[in-house]
Design a binder for these strands. Structure first.
Length: 311
DNA sequence: CGTCCACGTCTAC
DNA sequence: TAGACCTGGACGG
C-alpha cells in the first residue's frame, strides 16, 4: 500500500469504517510480530486516524464510563492513546468480521458488537512498525500533501545541507525533507517535469544562481521582442522548474488520493485505475536503472550526470 | 524446483 | 554502501 497517498487513504478508510463503532477490551498483537505490545484496555472506546507523510496515527479514545472507580480498579484506560504506524512495503488496515480476519493481521482492535468486527493492521512482509503512545517520528519532515507550506520552507531554508549533494531522484526519497514521497511518486514527478533523475538536487532546487548564466540569458530574451512568453524572465528556468518540482511533490500525490481507490495495491480490483494513472513507473517503453541505494529509478530520456557507473 | 523482484526503512561494518 | 528484515507473485528450466 504505502507511499504518502496510500497512508492517507488508509486514514480515510479507518475513519469511514470506524465511524460510530465502539471498540472494547484489549488490543491483540500477533504471535509472530516483533513490534511492541499495546498496553491499552478499555470497556468502550472509539478509533480515529490521521496521516502525515508516510505515517498514520490512530487515536484510541475511551468513552465516558458510568463508573470511573470500577474502571480504574480494572486497570482500564481513561486517557486517549495514540499509536503511530509506518507501513513498510506492505502494510494496510482492514475492517472485517472476526472470521474474515486477513492472513498477516498483526494488530487487532475488537468492536463491542456481536458478532464483533475487527480493525486490523495487516502487513505481509512485516517491515511495518507501530509505536504505542507514539509521536510522529522525529526527523521526518512536514507532510508533502497536508503541510505544503512548511514542506517547501523546510527545503528552501536547508539547501546547504549535504543531503542535497545527492542526485535529485535519491533526495526525493529522503524522508527528512520529502515525507510521503516513495519510489513510484519520484518517478512520476520527475517524469512530468522532464528532469533527468541523476542531476544534483541542489542544482534543481536552488536554480542557476551563477550570474553568468543569468547574464547569458538576458541578452537573448532582451533581443527578442518585449513581449516575453515566460512569466519569469531571467530568474533562470531552473528556478521555475524547482517551483514546479515542489508543487508537483504536493499535487501528484493528491491526484492519487483523488482517484479514490486504494492507490498502489496490485491485489485490489480497482488497481487498474491506478495503473492507468501511472505515466512512467513500470510503464512499457520507459527506462529503469538502480540508484545508489539499489532502488529502481524509472525515467525517460537522459539519466543525468550522476547516474551510477558500471554494470 | 529456482531466481528475481516488490509501494521502506534500519543498523552495522 | 552493503546487508538485514520478510512473504509471495511472476517467470524460467
Amino acid at each position: 500500500m504505502p507511499e504518502g497517498p496510500e497512508l492517507h487513504l488508509a486514514s480515510l478508510y479507518v475513519n469511514k469504517m470506524c465511524n460510530g463503532v465502539v471498540f472494547t477490551g484489549a488490543v491483540r498483537k500477533s504471535e509472530v510480530s516483533k513490534n511492541p505490545d499495546v498496553p491499552f484496555i478499555c470497556e468502550a472506546y472509539r478509533i480515529t486516524a490521521t496521516s502525515r507523510g508516510k505515517e498514520v496515527r490512530l487515536t484510541l479514545t475511551p468513552m465516558k464510563s458510568d463508573d470511573p472507580k470500577q474502571r480504574v480498579k480494572a486497570g482500564q484506560a481513561d486517557q486517549p492513546m495514540d499509536i503511530v504506524f509506518r507501513f513498510g512495503m506492505s502494510g494496510y488496515f482492514r475492517f472485517t468480521t472476526e472470521d474474515e480476519l486477513p492472513k498477516h493481521a498483526h494488530l487487532c482492535f475488537f468492536s463491542k458488537e456481536k458478532p464483533c468486527r475487527v480493525l486490523s493492521f495487516v502487513d505481509v512482509r512485516r517491515f511495518g512498525s507501530w509505536q504505542p503512545s507514539g509521536v510522529w517520528q522525529p526527523g521526518r519532515g512536514p507532510c508533502i500533501m497536508f503541510e505544503y507550506k512548511n514542506f517547501s520552507l523546510q527545503i528552501l531554508s536547508h539547501l546547504s545541507d549535504r543531503a542535497f549533494d545527492r542526485p535529485i531522484c535519491e533526495v526525493l526519497l529522503n524522508q527528512k525533507y520529502f515525507n510521503g514521497i516513495g519510489n513510484y511518486l519520484r518517478a512520476e514527478i520527475l517524469f512530468r517535469l522532464n528532469i533527468p533523475p541523476f542531476v544534483p538536487a541542489r542544482k534543481v532546487l536552488e536554480g542557476l544562481e551563477s550570474e553568468d548564466l543569468c547574464d547569458d540569458e538576458k541578452p537573448v530574451k532582451n533581443d527578442t521582442n518585449t513581449k516575453v512568453k515566460e512569466a519569469r524572465p531571467e530568474t533562470s528556468f531552473i528556478t521555475e522548474e524547482s517551483g514546479d518540482l515542489l508543487r508537483l511533490c504536493h499535487t501528484v500525490p493528491l491526484e492519487v488520493v483523488n482517484l479514490g481507490g486504494k492507490g498502489y495495491d496490485p491485489e485490489k480490483a480497482d488497481y487498474s485505475e491506478f495503473e492507468a494513472w501511472l505515466q512512467c513507473y513500470y510503464v512499457d517503453g520507459m527506462k529503469s536503472i538502480r540508484d545508489h541505494n539499489g532502488r529502481t529509478m524509472w525515467f525517460k530520456g537522459d539519466p543525468g550526470p550522476m547516474a551510477p557507473k558500471g554494470t
